[in-house]
């Protein structure tokens, strides 16, 4: 009897921490959206009937998708170079990728504020080169948000892809080559299919991370480029519309969980080793 309860006893404090301080509050947030006196789905009807709110959701989706595609492409190609680089260069490149990753999101977004601002480096550079005659602000545009987000997530993608590429057994690529496959053939028929499940896992991290981000859209997008994260904060802490904020939170949870579940299913299906 004692031995049957022991495993549960050891796990109990952690379970309680999650249940009480995550489960309870998040469920309450979700329930708030259904307990509106105007009807069970009133907050959602309000959300989707408002052109502004739909724009925010759509913009967030757009930014997250573009960020994901760019980060995956840039990350994969760079990881390919890193994985095939000489050992010494490789360790330096990995340090160069890890360092930004460990630097906080506020610091990294701030850097782009310095670069893209009206008196920023990019403007000074373009002025000095005579490409533009007057400085213009690149801040508070969708482009600024996307650049800063790609900057945020490329290191993560590089490290994920290096891990994925190094996990592919060399026997497989050797076998393909010795059976007459060209270099491109090995890449297309062996490496890419084996890398795709790992790429999907990385892409999900980037998508959910950018979909729910706060600091980057706040600093580089401002009010003009409101995204779901900044919108939630504004509703909750500036307007004190907690039902509205909870509705945004619920939509974020649904989108995130749906993406994670669907994509991990897809990754499992596409895995040539497991299939």
């Amino acid at each position: 009897m004692k031995n049957r309860l022991l495993p549960w006893g050891l796990a109990l404090p952690a379970i309680l921490l999650v249940a009480i301080f995550l489960g309870l509050p998040v469920i309450e947030t979700l329930l708030t959206t259904f307990a509106d006196p105007k009807g069970a789905f009133a907050p959602y009807i309000k959300f989707f009937n408002s052109g502004f709110r739909r724009t925010v959701l759509w913009r967030t989706m757009e930014v997250a998708v573009i960020t994901t595609v760019l980060s995956v492409l840039i990350g994969f190609v760079t990881a390919w170079v890193v994985a095939n680089a000489p050992a010494k260069a490789k360790s330096y490149l990995i340090i160069a990728a890890v360092f930004p990753l460990l630097t906080g999101v506020v610091v990294r977004s701030f850097a782009w504020l310095v670069i893209l601002g009206k008196n920023g480096i990019l403007n000074s550079l373009l002025l000095a080169l005579g490409i533009i005659s007057e400085p213009f602000s690149m801040l508070y545009t969708q482009g600024a948000v996307i650049v800063a987000m790609v900057y945020l997530f490329v290191p993560l993608m590089i490290l994920t892809c290096v891990g994925v590429l190094e996990g592919i057994p060399q026997d497989l690529t050797d076998a393909a080559a010795s059976l007459g496959a060209t270099q491109w053939g090995v890449f297309k028929q062996v490496i890419l299919p084996m890398a795709v499940p790992g790429l999907i896992v990385g892409a999900v991290l980037v998508f959910t991370g950018s979909f729910t981000s706060y600091a980057t859209p706040q600093l580089l997008g401002g009010e003009r480029q409101m995204m779901m994260g900044t919108f939630l904060h504004q509703r909750a802490m500036v307007v004190f519309d907690w039902v509205g904020a909870s509705t945004i939170a619920a939509i974020m949870v649904v989108v995130t969980l749906a993406t994670v579940l669907l994509m991990s299913k897809l990754a499992r299906k596409l895995n040539p080793v497991a299939g």
């Binding site: 995550l22 309450e28 947030t29 909870s246 949870v253 969980l257």
Partner: peptide
């Protein structure tokens, strides 16, 4: 805690 968006978690803890 990594699956639930951080910002949702922060908001919910604040509220509840």
């Amino acid at each position: 805690p990594v699956l639930i968006p951080e910002i949702v978690l922060g908001f919910s803890i604040m509220k509840t």
